[in-house]
Deep mutational scan, measured.
Amino acid sequence: EPSQADLDALLSAVRDNRLSIEQAVTLLTPSSGGGSGGGSMDAKEILTRFKDGGLDRAAAQALLAGRTPA
């Protein structure tokens, strides 16, 4: 399960175009075949909204942490 520091680094990389959204989703869902963790939004949607400015960093982190299976 990614830590808050991992999520923060991942969000920074996506925002700075050092990591594509697809690459980030793969890192967030290493063994689930890329499927959502059952959250209301999947990781790709969360990351896309964050990059487009629709979500701030704290909200994106909380959503990603919340949808990651324990």
Rank of each mutant, 00 (worst) to 15 (best):
residue 6 D to I: 13
residue 5 A to Y: 15
residue 51 K to V: 04
residue 25 V to F: 05
residue 70 A to N: 04
residue 10 L to N: 00
residue 48 T to E: 07
residue 29 T to W: 08
residue 38 G to I: 13
residue 29 T to Y: 13
residue 27 L to Y: 12
residue 35 G to E: 12
residue 13 A to L: 07
residue 50 F to E: 00
residue 41 M to I: 13
residue 63 L to H: 03
residue 24 A to D: 00
residue 67 R to C: 09
residue 35 G to I: 08
residue 10 L to R: 01
residue 39 G to C: 11
residue 59 A to L: 06
residue 47 L to P: 00
residue 41 M to G: 06
residue 12 S to D: 15
residue 6 D to A: 12
residue 18 R to V: 14
residue 3 S to W: 15
residue 13 A to C: 06
residue 15 R to T: 04
residue 43 A to F: 15
residue 35 G to K: 06
residue 54 G to T: 13
residue 16 D to A: 09
residue 4 Q to V: 07
residue 60 A to I: 03
residue 43 A to W: 06
residue 11 L to Q: 00
residue 22 E to P: 05
residue 2 P to N: 12
residue 36 S to F: 14
residue 21 I to G: 01
residue 10 L to T: 03
residue 3 S to A: 10
residue 65 A to S: 11
residue 13 A to H: 04
residue 6 D to P: 06
residue 45 E to G: 06
residue 50 F to I: 01
residue 29 T to Q: 14
residue 39 G to D: 11
residue 37 G to H: 12
residue 66 G to E: 06
residue 24 A to R: 00
residue 67 R to T: 11
residue 55 L to C: 03
residue 42 D to W: 14
residue 2 P to Q: 13
residue 62 A to M: 11
residue 39 G to K: 08
residue 36 S to E: 14
residue 68 T to R: 10
residue 44 K to D: 03
residue 35 G to M: 12
residue 57 R to M: 14
residue 60 A to R: 01
residue 14 V to S: 00
residue 33 G to Q: 15
residue 69 P to W: 03
residue 44 K to N: 06
residue 6 D to H: 13
residue 7 L to K: 02
residue 64 L to T: 01
residue 60 A to E: 00
residue 15 R to G: 05
residue 36 S to Y: 14
residue 49 R to H: 04
residue 44 K to A: 08
residue 66 G to H: 07
residue 40 S to K: 08
residue 56 D to W: 02
residue 61 Q to T: 10
residue 61 Q to A: 14
residue 44 K to V: 09
residue 48 T to H: 05
residue 17 N to Y: 03
residue 65 A to Q: 08
residue 43 A to N: 05
residue 63 L to T: 02
residue 64 L to A: 01
residue 51 K to E: 01
residue 34 G to V: 12
residue 60 A to T: 05
residue 31 S to A: 11
residue 35 G to N: 10
residue 6 D to S: 13
residue 19 L to W: 04
residue 46 I to C: 02
residue 8 D to R: 07
residue 66 G to K: 13
residue 58 A to N: 07
residue 33 G to K: 08
residue 43 A to R: 06
residue 49 R to F: 04
residue 54 G to V: 13
residue 26 T to W: 10
residue 38 G to K: 11
residue 49 R to N: 04
residue 31 S to Y: 12
residue 28 L to M: 05
residue 28 L to C: 04
residue 53 G to L: 03
residue 21 I to C: 02
residue 9 A to H: 07
residue 53 G to S: 03
residue 65 A to I: 07
residue 19 L to K: 02
residue 9 A to S: 09
residue 52 D to P: 01
residue 59 A to I: 06
residue 2 P to M: 13
residue 46 I to G: 01
residue 12 S to L: 10
residue 16 D to R: 06
residue 32 S to C: 13
residue 15 R to E: 10
residue 21 I to H: 01
residue 46 I to Q: 01
residue 45 E to Y: 05
residue 11 L to H: 00
residue 48 T to N: 05
residue 37 G to C: 13
residue 15 R to M: 14
residue 29 T to M: 10
residue 42 D to R: 13
residue 68 T to I: 12
residue 22 E to L: 08
residue 47 L to F: 10
residue 38 G to R: 09
residue 22 E to Y: 05
residue 18 R to P: 00
residue 7 L to H: 03
residue 69 P to H: 13
residue 61 Q to H: 09
residue 26 T to Q: 14
residue 24 A to L: 03
residue 49 R to D: 03
residue 14 V to H: 00
residue 9 A to F: 10
residue 62 A to V: 07
residue 33 G to M: 11
residue 5 A to D: 08
residue 25 V to R: 02
residue 8 D to V: 06
residue 52 D to L: 13
residue 67 R to Y: 13
residue 38 G to Y: 07
residue 20 S to I: 02
residue 52 D to Q: 15
residue 35 G to F: 05
residue 3 S to N: 09
residue 67 R to D: 07
residue 31 S to T: 12
residue 63 L to M: 12
residue 7 L to D: 02
